Each structure stands twice: as structure tokens, then as C-alpha cells.
Amino acid sequence: MSKIHPTAIIEPGAQLDESVEVGAYAIVGAHVAIGARTTIGSHSVIEGHTTIGEDNRIGHYASVGGRPQDMKYKDEPTRLEIGNRNTIREFTTIHTGTVQDQGVTVIGDDCWIMAYVHVGHDCRLGSNVIMSSNAQLAGHVFVDDFAIVGGMSGVHQFVRIGAHSMLGGASALVQDVPPFVIAAGNKAEPHGINVEGLRRRGFSAEAISALRAAYRVVYKSGLSLEEAKVQLRELGVAGGDGDAPVTAFSDFIAASQRGIIR
């Protein structure tokens, strides 16, 4: 028995593994490639130059691979790349990239993307990212591995959200969130280290303690950011289990283009 509903439209040129399931009235465009055991819900549209890996579940009425919401876009063949084992729920919108950036929007593996989420052009989601319902990413946003974006939050273009961080619900984020940090509010402000999340992911007590010390240097010491960067570099060579997380925290802050939340 075919796994493609008879009312679905698969345009000539589309490449679907024989195990892919496509629901009623769904549309799959000519430049789409879909890997094994992925399921496409009814009424969804998968279009553009889009590659989807294996074991993904795409809900009903999703719009994946659409044109960027960028007035500079002139029909260039930009791309969307989605990895493996992602869940993308109902009414989500994910757009391809633009030539003004790298020309590609990327979603990693094992992400959980809830209903009504928007992922704008040229965004890059790492792996194990959670985006709660109605979270909205403008263009060029980076969300690193294991980050959580709360429901009804809005993220400004070119912002980066660090690994293992958490953005609370209904937040407005206009600057970068360092890794391991909890942020919330309008405009979003820092609210400590994501201790519970780190414990669940196996971070040691020593590593969490070191991150707390690094957080205090940046947010509680009264130092300027440049002074805090110097102290962070010293913390990152203490010779303990916290070295790698503190170095990641320090390197992220040093590389930030928009500045970090304060």
C-alpha cells in the first residue's frame, strides 16, 4: 500500500524515500528531497530547495521551505536543510536562506519545534533545541545546541542564543544570550545559570559551580564588560572540571557582535 495519500501532490523532480509518508492534500515541491521514515502531515506544503533527513515528523498545515520574508529576495535558489529525528508541529513556518547571508537556513537533529513557531531566513538551529509554541525567530538568528526558547517569545534578527540557555516565555530578545544562562522579560534580562537543565544533562557540581562564578563576574561584580572578560579568561584555566564550560561562556561573550544581555 502506498504511503502517499492519493490527494497529495508530489511534483515531478521531488526525491522521496519509499518509506516517506505524505498525508492528505499535502504538497511536495520539485526541488525537495526527503529521507527515510519521515512523515508529512495533511495539508502541509514542503517547497523550495529543501532537504529533509530521516525520521522527522512534520505536523499538519506546516509550511516548510517557503520564500524568505525579505524584500531583497529575488528568487535566488537558496536552501533549507533539516537534519534527522526532528518534530515540527502544526502551522510552523520555516523559510529558506538569502544570498545576502550564506544562502541556507539550517535545523540540526533532534529538535522539538512546537505549533505556530516561525524560523526566519538564514537561521541556524543546532541539535536538541526546543522551541515552544508561537516562538518567533527573525532572520539570521543562531540557536545553539540544547537551548530552549519559550512560547510567544520574539527574537531580533542577528541575535545568538547560546548552548544550554533558556529564554522564558513571552520574552523580547534583542541581544545575545550567553550559553548556560536563563533570560526572560521584555526586554529580556539575565536571571542566573540554567542549573536544573545542566544537572539533567549530566554537568558536574564542579562545572555548575564554576559557571556560577563566571556568571557573577559578568553580572554581579560591578566590573565593566572588558574587565569581566579578563577575569573570565583567568577562570577558564583553573585546572578543574569547570574549565570547558567557562571557556565556552567566555568565548561566546568575546565573539558577540550584538552584545550580550545585561
Rank of each mutant, 00 (worst) to 15 (best):
D251P: 04
Y61F: 15
V45N: 02
A33C: 01
G202Y: 03
F180G: 07
D122H: 07
V237Q: 12
P245T: 14
G236S: 14
V177I: 15
A172K: 13
H49R: 04
V181H: 05
V64G: 03
N128P: 00
A138V: 08
E226S: 15
I52L: 08
D241V: 00
N86H: 02
R212V: 09
E227G: 01
A115V: 08
H43R: 10
G29L: 13
L223K: 15
D176G: 15
L223Y: 10
S221M: 04
K187G: 01
N56S: 05
P68D: 04
A33T: 12
L173G: 14
P179V: 11
E54R: 14
F146R: 09
G197C: 11
D75H: 09
G120P: 06
E90D: 13
A14H: 11
G162N: 05
G239V: 13
G29R: 12
A184R: 14
F146D: 08
C123T: 06
K72A: 08
H95E: 12
M114Y: 08
V106D: 01
F91D: 01
Q15M: 12
Q69M: 00
P12K: 15
G239D: 04
S224P: 03
R199H: 01
D144T: 00
H118I: 01
G192F: 08
G151P: 07
L232Y: 12
R57A: 06
A238D: 10
A184T: 13
T50S: 10
Q69V: 00
I40M: 02
M166W: 05
R212I: 11
E81Q: 12
G35H: 05
K74Q: 14
F180P: 09
Q102N: 14
R201I: 01
M1V: 15
I82K: 01
A238H: 09
A26W: 12
M152S: 05
F146S: 09
L225V: 11
L80G: 03
T78M: 04
G240R: 05
L173E: 11
Y25V: 09
Q102F: 01
I113S: 05
L235A: 15
I10Y: 11
Y73E: 03
A205S: 10
G192Y: 09
I208P: 04
A26M: 14
I107E: 03
V155Q: 07
K3L: 15
A30S: 15
E90S: 05
A188W: 10
D55K: 02
D176N: 14
Q100Y: 02
A147W: 06
D75I: 00
V141P: 14
G154E: 02
I46G: 03
R199D: 00
H49F: 11
A207R: 01
M166F: 14
I113Q: 04
G154N: 03
I193M: 10
Q100T: 04
T93F: 02
L80I: 07
V20T: 11
A33H: 00
H5P: 08
